[in-house]
């Protein structure tokens, strides 16, 4: 089973991102679970969302998870030590930051020695979509890094999932995803 944990602020689209990833993977015949851990929170409060992806139906309904991937879609949450909770040495981190990897690790010491990928998803989403909603670019980076699904198939599914939005939004998201896949390192 593949386990993914998203760190976000309420309103940045982690829940939507997690559900979109689940939807994409379900289309390939996988079983999925996408959920989030809510408080009765306000927009802007830190929150987590989760994906489980497996070949068999997913029965475990507990919230606890030791993730294979941690996706941090808010740049300020990178500095919070919560993002390494319940992880292993193999857990891969994909985080959004304007800093290059080596400089980031100097400040976010908890990420030192961890498998780490960085992209500036805020900048990408602002420039391509026009709003700082970094969920789709981080998703793009994840698909690139994990190779979990063929990139073009992924793009097709995302386009379909977004089809209820105006064309401008769809195009922006697709550009943001592609650019994120190129820029993540």
């Amino acid at each position: 089973m593949l386990r993914i944990r998203w760190h976000s602020r309420a309103g940045q689209g982690a829940v939507t991102g997690a559900k979109a990833l689940a939807d994409v993977m379900a289309r390939t015949g996988k079983f999925v679970q996408a959920y989030s851990v809510y408080g009765a929170e306000k927009r802007g409060a830190p929150m987590t969302a989760y994906d489980k992806i497996d070949d068999n139906p997913i029965l475990d309904h507990s919230k606890w998870m030791s993730p294979d991937y941690v996706l941090v879609i808010d740049p300020s949450l990178v500095y919070q030590e919560e993002i390494v909770e319940n992880t292993t040495d193999d857990t891969i981190f994909i985080v959004t930051s304007h800093l290059p990897k080596d400089e980031l690790v100097k400040i976010a010491k908890h990420l030192e020695g961890r498998p780490l990928y960085v992209l500036d998803a805020i900048k990408i989403s602002q420039e391509e979509i026009g709003r700082p909603i970094p969920n789709t670019p981080v998703l793009g980076a994840f698909v690139k890094v994990s190779g979990i699904i063929d990139f073009d198939t992924f793009l097709e599914s995302i386009e379909d999932i977004l089809s209820k939005f105006p064309q401008k939004i769809i195009d922006g998201n697709l550009r943001a995803i592609k650019r994120a896949a190129e820029e993540v390192q």
């Binding site: 689940a22 379900a26 079983f31 996408a34 959920y35 809510y38 309904h61």
Partner: peptide, 12 residues
């Protein structure tokens, strides 16, 4: 159905 564990958990 269990609140959040089922109601807010997306599955196939």
């Amino acid at each position: 159905q269990d609140g959040f564990l089922v109601s807010h958990t997306a599955q196939v």
